[in-house]
């Protein structure tokens, strides 16, 4: 974004940026408060388990809100559709060693972004469901409570790894970050990272 003269292509609608930011904050709060409840030596630093638990529960309950509100956005629904669909080139992209070279022309989302989005949605659903079993634990038999705790714990660790990976990728691409912050990206970046999508936007 340093060259102000560069042509900008619109990438994310306001509703999408808002959902991303809200979900990001909520997932961040959940991972941090969850870590304090989960790791004994972290929990010892702050104690206050009841407050930490309450914050975790409130953030958990709020997770569906931005997702459901976003369904009212046409741009969000359209991008959700793109994230859902894999084409043969997506498999090629995943298999290729030079996936960053631009040889395989990528649409609005590359296959990694598609997988990340799908995994995240599935994981959020599982975390929400198992969280509810733990919240209303008296309604469920022991075996399900133990099972829900088991799944919630290990999936949280998996989510943490993937969220850190997501943040690492974003940390290394300030233009992509600016795209999510401002909603648009320079044409040159789009041509490099999402060539097919760049053509598509310009032909509108």
């Amino acid at each position: 974004m340093s060259q102000s003269s560069e042509v900008l292509l619109p990438r994310f609608a306001r509703a999408e940026r808002w959902v991303h930011r809200t979900l990001g904050i909520l997932v961040g709060v959940l991972l941090v408060t969850g870590a304090f409840m989960f790791f004994p030596d972290l929990g010892s630093l702050i104690g206050n388990r009841q407050i930490v638990t309450t914050v975790h529960e409130v953030a958990g309950w709020l997770i569906p809100v931005p997702l459901l509100l976003a369904l009212g956005s046409r741009a969000f629904r359209a991008d959700a559709g793109r994230l859902n669909r894999f084409r043969p080139s997506d498999w090629d992209w995943l298999r290729s060693r030079d996936r960053r070279s631009g040889r395989i022309r990528v649409g609005k989302f590359n296959a990694g972004q598609k997988l990340n989005a799908s995994w995240t949605l599935g994981a959020l659903i599982v975390m929400f469901g198992t969280g509810m079993v733990m919240f209303w634990s008296s309604l469920f038999p022991d075996s399900l409570r133990t099972g829900a705790t088991f799944v919630h714990d290990w999936m949280a660790l998996a989510m943490a790894v993937i969220v850190l990976g997501h943040i690492w990728m974003a940390y290394n691409d300030s233009t992509a970050r600016a795209g999510m912050r401002t909603g648009s990206v320079p044409e040159s970046w789009a041509e490099r990272e999402h060539a097919e999508w760049a053509d598509e936007v310009r032909s509108r």
């Binding site: 859902n84 669909r85 799908s118 599935g122 659903i125 079993v133 829900a148 799944v151 999936m155």
Partner: peptide
């Protein structure tokens, strides 16, 4: 619709995990 399959797969894994978690 690979995305949908991934979502359903993760959810299915979660359900199996809850059922057999103990």
């Amino acid at each position: 619709p690979v995305g949908r399959r991934v979502v359903l797969g993760v959810v299915g894994l979660g359900v199996v995990g809850v059922a057999t978690g103990r």
